[in-house]
Design a protein around this nucleic acid. Structure first.
Lengths: 252, 252
DNA sequence: GACATCTAGATGTCTAGATGTGTAACGGCT
DNA sequence: AGCCGTTACACATCTAGACATCTAGATGTC
């Protein structure tokens, strides 16, 4: 196989061949692929080349690598039904988060200092404040044992009630924070996007760096229109193919 | 550096050190990192280990690797303002696609046979048809020269007007298709999610496998409620940090 | 000036081999 | 039976070295 050079790399051609076998059903969903040495021997390439091909398929979400066990074909995409609006073609963004909340709610995991990093500066800009005026919280939401959502909050330090920066605090953070601070919060804007997990996210989520995450960010204001809270959530599913699913709502 | 063994891999520690330098401003946005051999010498590790660390940061969206040129620190996230609805906390999903349309509209790039692959079966299930009754189209949307969106369409073959499966066809596919077929299409449901580019997507988009993509999928029906079209779009930005941005609309 | 060619240096690919470490099953011991 | 250590085998990490290929700039040519 290593003969006849073409422009496409060997590992990529090998990845394609493996993908074809999966598509063709030679390796069915849940099945274990041959081990790396076996593939190395079968295709007559170095084991590292096999690993590159396999890593490519893992990044593509096609297979799952389990250390010490083997590589397995992923079952089809997992979807989480969430929400609803049929006629108006519209979606209630607020409920996306609600649907992701497990019974335990959020858990504050850190309150890193606002130093002036790129993230901090962006948050400061969105809140119209200087970085020095802001506090920051990091929280996670679990579904069972797995961390499924990582959230970063920035808000004026004056609005942070005592004790809310204590790691381990659990609850429904935004409403409890608003209640404790004696303010009301209204949505200003929200955004959706796709992003790869960075080093910090990957560590918190226990997932490889670059894992695709659904990002929801936004700003909440006090009723007089003053920006009071900038939130940036990174949401992950049980596989790389996780998709939030808005379903028709019966009573709208 | 290769000394004192810890549990975290060497390449990951190196990645973290490089990330810290970027955060600290040692390497500023747009700046070129030292070359791989230079980093290899500085940290006294193998060049392949450097490459693993650098690849990690690239997947995280922190840096950009340009072959033959060097590795560069990415500028902050690029955002594309799109849409709107302030008070109701709702978003018109239809306009997301409209905002992504360039003036050239879509371009049909392929009409692959519906074979019975996992994708085909899923589409068939969502349309309530047998795979044999369906046709499939693949299209792209460009922004300038770059492909920014890849779309897959499944629809009953009986509804596919002649000529629409011709690669190179340009236009606003869905409305033109509905007009040519003499049917009306209404939204049934839509979904958002994050996914990594698979092998086929990566090739079409000219991006690495696993690049985070924003996915929007959904089904459109004829007015009598019969599912007629299943669409699955994969949307990419100019960087891994692309975020669709819904902004407040003045007149709602 | 316009264009082709060369070249240094950068990343990309691939091989060979060694060692680390997690998993699960086997089999002996209690 | 049930616990627990051993062990085979899987993937994970790391090194050393070679060659391929791309990019951008310098150089040469018309």
């Amino acid at each position: 196989m290593a003969t006849h050079r073409t422009s496409t790399p060997l590992y990529r051609r090998l990845a394609r061949q493996l993908q074809e076998r999966i598509d063709a059903g030679t390796y069915t969903a849940g099945a274990r692929l041959p081990s790396e040495p076996e593939l190395s021997a079968e295709f007559d390439v170095n084991r590292l080349t096999v690993r590159q091909a396999v890593a490519e398929l893992e990044r593509a979400g096609t297979i799952e690598i389990r250390r010490g066990v083997g590589t397995f074909v992923r079952p089809p995409a997992v979807r989480v039904s969430i929400d609803v609006d049929p006629r108006s073609q519209r979606v209630d963004l607020g409920s996306v988060h609600a649907a992701l909340h497990s019974r335990d709610g959020e858990e504050v995991v850190a309150a890193p200092p606002v130093t002036g990093s790129a993230e901090d500066l962006e948050a400061a800009g969105r809140l119209g404040r200087a970085p020095g005026e802001l506090s920051r919280l990091e929280s996670v939401i679990r579904l069972g044992a797995e961390v499924r959502t990582v959230s970063s909050y920035w808000l004026p330090s004056a609005l942070l009630p005592p004790g809310f920066d204590r790691p381990g605090l659990r609850g429904n953070l935004v409403p409890e924070l608003a209640r404790a601070a004696g303010i009301e919060l209204e949505y200003d804007w929200r955004a959706f996007g796709a992003i790869g997990a960075d080093l910090a996210d990957a560590e918190l989520l226990g997932l490889p760096v670059g894992t695709p995450l659904l990002v929801r960010e936004g700003v909440s204001c006090t009723p007089d229109g003053a920006p009071a809270l900038y939130v940036r959530r990174r949401i992950v599913g049980s596989s790389a193919r996780f998709v939030l699913h808005y379903r028709e709502h019966p009573d709208r």
